[in-house]
Each structure stands twice: as structure tokens, then as C-alpha cells.
Nucleic acid binder design. Structure first.
Lengths: 135, 135
DNA sequence: TTTCGTGCAAAGCATTTGCAAGTAG
DNA sequence: CTACTTGCAAATGCTTTGCACGAAA
């Protein structure tokens, strides 16, 4: 809550519910998943509010918006350096710990680099076990 | 064309037009942009054909599907290791050359890693010059 | 003939927007 | 009072699907 205030985002019940849900999960949920889950503790919340909040928190740097899934944005409250791995069979997203994320300079070709995000793709351990190794 | 055949994608006029357009641009076009542009040389092509082709070529490994833009998939025929930078102000996507892309092992935590993609975000040189540096 | 690719239109989702009502400063 | 937030519904936009036709194996 202090974090939200510091980030310039007015804390409201709805926004706190969203942030707390995100911090309590490692599942990198989509906006719609957040909506469905938060609705359990805050039944009147509107879809638009969820989208607004996720955008506000993303811009404020409080959470990360992942573009690892082409079909829908996913969100992550874990700001530490890590890589996101997406299974091309089941679609699940996993964390992979790394010492440090790929570091470019702060300034490359005149562009100011503010963030670097690394995504990995392949077949996850679970799908491999299921024999769906598929190549 | 040989490349398409090798990849198991039957070459057709429409598919060749799409691949040639992609290879002749560095603009990382969206599917819709591809549709509009290819339509100039192949006026009867349907949107669905463009989407089908882009998906087929992506799966075949002939082109890359980028998820650097949350609002729409972008495509790139340049398979060499490079990072994609997206300006948060104008939305433009630029290439950044790197010696090698972030290398994870082939197998991490039981997941088989088939591809690694790195995206950078910030403000591009052009927007910075326009004084829209904005922070 | 069986399969695959194409073109067209309609449908499906994720996301955004407009607007009225409520709330905080 | 003024600005911001919420909730609802409708719209927008990217992408996919269903179907019929035509070309290729």
C-alpha cells in the first residue's frame, strides 16, 4: 500500500485486492484470470477496473506486464531478474532464475533502454513427462 | 522457395508474396500490415490466408513471430541473433545487434528450451530528438 | 478422388472507451 | 467543487473459424 502511494497510484480497495492477488500467486495470470479471481473477494469489481488497474500498476513499475503469451497479456508481481518460459504445448508460463538478465547498455543506438525482458520457449517438464515430447 | 519446401510448407504464389515482402522489410510488420502491403502485389489475397501463412511459416521456423507489441503480433524474417527494441512512445520496433542472444542451457529445470527471445523497451532515438524524452 | 490452399464473411476474444454515478481531497 | 475511480455496456480491433470453391497430388 505504501508502495502504491509511492508509485503515485491512489490505493483503493479494488486495486489492493488486485495487487494482493498478484503477489500471492506465481501463475502469471492473464487479465481475465485476475478478474475472475479477484471477483471472489471483491464481487462487484468490473472488468474495466481490472484492466485500468493493471495498466496503472504496470506504468508505475509496481508489476510487470508480460508479452510471452501472444493471445493475452500476463502479469507478474515479482520484480526480481528472471526469465519467463512458456510451453508451446500447454501454454503454461514458468519462472527461470538467472543471475542477471541480459544487460544491454542504458543507451543503445540512441535509444534509451529502460527495461529488458527475456522470454524462453519450448516444452515444459510436465509435458515432456506426459510423453507429449513431440520431437 | 527452396527454403519453404524444405520447411514442409507448400509454396504458393500468396505465400511467396508474403515471404518476399517480409524479407524485403526491416519494419517488423503486424499481420494486418502484411495483409495491406501484400495486397498491392496480390490483390485478391484474403486476410485469413495471411494469418494462415504467417502461422505456418512461424511453425516451420522460417520466420519469427514477435510478441514485443502487446496489441498485435509482429513478424520478422531475419533469423540472426538480435534483440528487438520497442519504443513506448511511438510503438516503433527496432533491431539491436548483439553477439549472441541470452543463452540458457538446452534443458532448464526439466524444460526443453527451443528458443530464447529478448525484448528491450524504452524511448527510441527519434522520439528523444523530438524532445518527447518525457522523463 | 482425396487433400490442401484460398477467399469471403461471420464469429470469438481480449481489450478499450463512453458515460453516469459515487468518492476523496 | 473538482478530479479521480468505479461499474456497466457497447464498441473496437486482432485473430480464428466455417464453408464452398478450385488446384494439386
Amino acid at each position: 500500500m505504501a508502495r502504491m502511494r509511492d508509485a503515485g497510484v491512489t490505493p483503493t480497495m479494488q486495486r489492493l485486492a488486485i495487487l494482493e492477488f498478484l503477489e500471492g500467486t506465481k501463475s502469471h495470470p492473464t487479465a481475465d484470470k485476475v478478474y475472475v479471481e479477484v471477483r471472489k473477494t471483491c464481487p462487484t469489481i468490473a472488468r474495466a477496473t481490472v484492466y485500468n488497474t493493471l495498466e496503472a500498476l504496470t506504468k508505475a513499475g509496481t508489476i510487470l506486464q508480460l508479452t510471452v503469451d501472444p493471445s493475452a497479456a500476463r502479469y507478474d508481481a515479482d520484480l526480481g531478474p528472471h526469465v519467463h518460459f512458456r510451453c508451446r504445448l500447454c501454454g503454461e508460463v514458468y519462472d527461470i532464475d538467472v543471475k542477471q538478465e541480459n544487460c544491454l547498455g542504458d543507451l543503445v543506438k540512441g535509444h534509451r533502454v529502460e527495461a529488458v525482458r527475456t522470454y524462453a520457449f519450448g516444452v515444459c517438464a510436465s509435458c515432456r513427462k506426459k510423453g507429449r515430447d513431440d520431437a
